[in-house]
Design a protein around this nucleic acid. Structure first.
Lengths: 278, 278
DNA sequence: CTTGACTTTGACGCTACGTCAACCCGGACA
DNA sequence: TGTCCGGGTTGACGTAGCGTCAAAGTCAAG
């Protein structure tokens, strides 16, 4: 019979761990002195302890380990638990590998530009949302901005504040292209069947901004004319992190644009639907 | 200005997280209503939040993230932190890969023998210890067991209980070999310069049981004659987990052998110094 | 008998929040 | 103007697996 100190020395674990395992009923000493509370272990218990440590070392929780060593689960169930653990480990491995790639890309960024970089990309999901919008092609940025202002005017006047959400622009055209194929509108908090007429004789119709599982996003603030810089940053990020574009990009205006003291200063979230490159 | 609910919806994080980040001073709302305690955030704060989320996503702790976003560390220090994180991730990756290999070897074990297997291997380290011993070759197991008994008798008689620790046998000979090259003795709790004379005219001398960094160990109990079965299990384990033997094996007798009701029944820990195969 | 090494229980700490509970506010609607 | 409901607030507890004190009792050697 060993006292806890000697037993812990032999097994090379801490006494605290042995007390803990006792407290949760995972490994109780062979004998406990009723008067003093001293725990006494035998060498034979090292086999159970070893089994516990070996299973724990596989990454199983003590709960699972307990069920296994207490033998009240079948071999098939143990196999199942191990298969689950295996799948989990495989997922963890690929996640950690991704993380490592991101860390490396950040390090490279620092080495290249001497700082953390201006923009931070975050991956998230987006739900579908009703979308009151107008799709058209524009000859240049000037045209598009004019239409933005007209849309803001019309929607502000004709749609109650409780129904309209943020202004969103969906860009269908290739980035490099000269003329812009844009869908300009407002997300809505609930569906409505009203159409909104614009000054030029056109009208906005109700559609839907589809849900997206994986969205690479970035928030920027500044003059709207310089927004393209942020697109470049997103492109670099996607390349470094092995994502590719899987749909038209969106710009969400987080603050009402063209208002306040500096009209051309906007805060927008740029969103790119992406998927993992093979 | 957004209230916490809308801000959390835009950023796709929970309100609880925002309150938490406020409480630890990582991201405080732009404005807090003194009367009601309501938190008000602005769209511009999404940039800070995004940076926080992006850095956290690299696996950094919130403490590290805080120091980075608060900008009171130099680029060099940030680089250092990321390099550290990179090293840590690489270590984690190889650990998890090992774990995965162990899980797979267990699964295979189950498939082959329909159970978890009789023995559980645990890897640990061992410190150096003074060792009072005799090294010799033996013709067979019978000879060796006789010497074991003689050593027990002599040491029990001549070395005080407080000084002697466990009986240890170091096996230098090849496993397959016919004659056994063994070192038989007792670990000591402290150094002593006494020699111990044995019946056959030989004597035990003081040496050292060297420290070992990585020891693959297994505890078994049963007839001493069947100990070789456990060696086989250890060999299989080493093969499956890509370890190779890097020194002579040891058998540590966890309970005094050849005593008690069943004299041939022993509890021993078999230890193999190992290192990772390339 | 004294010491010093060992053991006991109990409590707190750690990470990064999730999940109630009890209570207070704000804006829309009647 | 009353009422209502969704949303806000603080506070506490839980998580996994122990490490790390702290105060107090035990054991064995000298």
């Amino acid at each position: 019979m060993f006292r806890i100190g000697e037993f812990s020395t032999i097994a090379r674990v801490s006494g605290r761990l042995l007390r803990y395992y006792d407290s949760i009923g995972l490994l109780s000493p062979q004998h406990v002195d009723a008067a003093t509370g001293y725990r006494y272990y035998t060498a034979g218990q090292l086999e159970r302890l070893n089994r516990i440590l070996a299973l724990k070392d596989l990454g199983l929780s003590l709960d699972q380990v307990a069920r296994m060593v207490d033998g009240n689960v079948s071999t098939g169930e143990i196999r199942g638990m191990l298969m689950l653990k295996k799948a989990e480990l495989e997922r963890t491995l690929s996640e950690e590998a991704d993380r490592l790639a991101r860390v490396e890309s950040r390090l490279q960024q620092i080495d290249e530009q001497g700082s953390l970089g201006e923009y931070d990309v975050v991956v998230k999901a987006a739900a579908a949302q009703p979308f009151l919008s107008l799709r058209r092609t524009f000859a240049g940025m000037g045209d598009a901005v004019a239409m933005l202002k007209e849309v803001i005017r019309a929607v502000t006047a004709q749609v109650p504040p409780a129904v309209r959400d943020k202004m969103v622009v969906v860009a269908y055209s290739d980035f490099e292209d000269e003329d812009l194929d844009l869908e300009i509108g407002f997300g809505l908090t609930r569906s409505t069947n009203r159409k909104v007429a614009l000054a030029g004789g056109e009208e906005m119709t109700l559609g839907e901004l589809p849900a997206v599982e994986t969205l690479a996003t970035l928030v920027r603030s500044g003059p709207i004319q310089q927004a393209h810089i942020a697109f470049g940053a997103l492109g670099l990020w996607m390349e470094a992190n092995r994502y590719r574009i899987s749909g038209p990009s969106r710009e969400v205006f987080l603050e009402p644009p063209f208002s306040g003291p500096r009209p051309e200063h906007v805060v927008m979230e740029i969103q790119f639907p992406v998927s993992r490159a093979a």
